[in-house]
Amino acid sequence: MSDASENVTKSGPSIDVLIPAIEKDLATLPHVIDSLRRYVRHPISHIYIVSPNSSKIRKLCSRKNCVFVDETTVLPFTKKAIRYSSSRWNRSGWLYQQLLKMNGDHICREKFFLVVDADTVLIRPHRFRSGGKSIFYCRNWSQPEYFRTYRKLLGAAAPSPKSFVTHYMLFESAKLASLKRTIEARHGMPWHAAILRSINKKRQFGFSEFETYANYVYSRNSAAVLLRNANNKSLSTPVAALGQERIQRLARTYRSLSFHQRKGYSTPAKP
C-alpha cells in the first residue's frame, strides 16, 4: 500500500455514508469511520450513524463529525415489532438493521449513499462510480434463502452471477425508491411488510438488503453495473491490536477487513 495510492484525488459524485451501529460496535466503529475518510475516492458530504439512543455513540458522532440518527425515527415500527427467531437463534435485530438500511433514502441527502457495516474497515482505496456506472463489490458464495426471498418479492430469479453480500454497497436513492415501489405494487402492502411476509421464518438468513437491491439494479440494466471482487477478510483479532505493518501486508491481498463480533443484532434465543 504505497503513499501514492493514498493520495489519489477524490472525484466523481459526492456521496453520503450510512452506518447502522450499536454500542457493541464501538470497538470497531471509529476505525470504520477513519477508513472511509481515508480510502473512499469520492467526496463524502455526511456520515450518518443510525443507532439506538446511546450517549456513547452520540459522543463518538460528535468527536468524529458524524450525524447521529435515532433508529426509532427511521421506520414506522421498532425492533420489538419483528419476530424472527427459533429456540436456537434470534435474527430479529439482524433483520431490523437491514430494513433500516433499506430506508436510507429517507435519511441521506445525496443522490448516492454508501452503506457500510459497523464492523468492516477498508484498507485500500475504493471507488463506487466510474463512467456513469455503479461499482458493486462481490464474492462467490451466498445464502440460498436470500434468493428464494428475492423471487417471492419480485417474481423473478436473481440474475447476477455473483453475490453482493460484501458488507458495504453504494445505493442510488432513486433506484432504491423504485425497488420499494415495485415491491409495494406487486404485493399491495408497504415494502417492509412484504419483506417480512416473504421470509421463511423457520430458516436463518432469510433476507439480504444488499443481494436484493443489487440484483434489482442488475436486472434492470446489467451494462450499467461494474463487478469487482471484494477480497474481504474476516478476522477475530481486535482491530485495535492490528499494527500498521500487518495491515499493509493484508492490503496486498485484501480490500477490507471484517471483525464479526457483534451480538446485539444477532443473538442466541433465550432458553
Rank of each mutant, 00 (worst) to 15 (best):
F113L: 11
L100I: 01
R88N: 13
T120K: 13
S92G: 01
V115Q: 04
S85F: 06
R109V: 00
D105G: 02
E110K: 05
D105C: 03
K101M: 07
R124V: 11
H106K: 14
C108Y: 07
S86C: 03
L99M: 13
W94P: 13
G93D: 07
F113K: 11
F112I: 08
R91M: 14
Y84K: 04
E110A: 10
T120W: 15
W89Y: 04
I82G: 02
M102H: 03
L122W: 05
S85Q: 10
V116D: 00
P125S: 09
N103K: 03
D119A: 03
R88V: 11
G104E: 13
G104A: 06
R91P: 08
R127T: 07
D105Y: 03
K101C: 08
Q98E: 04
D119P: 00
L95C: 10
I123H: 01
S86Q: 04
V116N: 11
H126T: 06
L99Y: 09
R109P: 05
S87K: 13
S92N: 09
W89T: 12
R124L: 15
P125W: 07
L114W: 09
K111L: 05
V116S: 09
W89M: 10
L95F: 14
G93Y: 10
W89H: 12
M102W: 00
A118F: 14
E110N: 04
S92T: 10
R91H: 15
D119G: 02
Y84Q: 03
C108E: 05
A81L: 11
K101P: 08
L114V: 01
V115F: 10
A118C: 13
V121T: 06
Q98M: 05
R127P: 02
Y84I: 05
T120C: 08
V116R: 06
A81F: 14
S86W: 00
R124F: 13
L99H: 08
S87E: 13
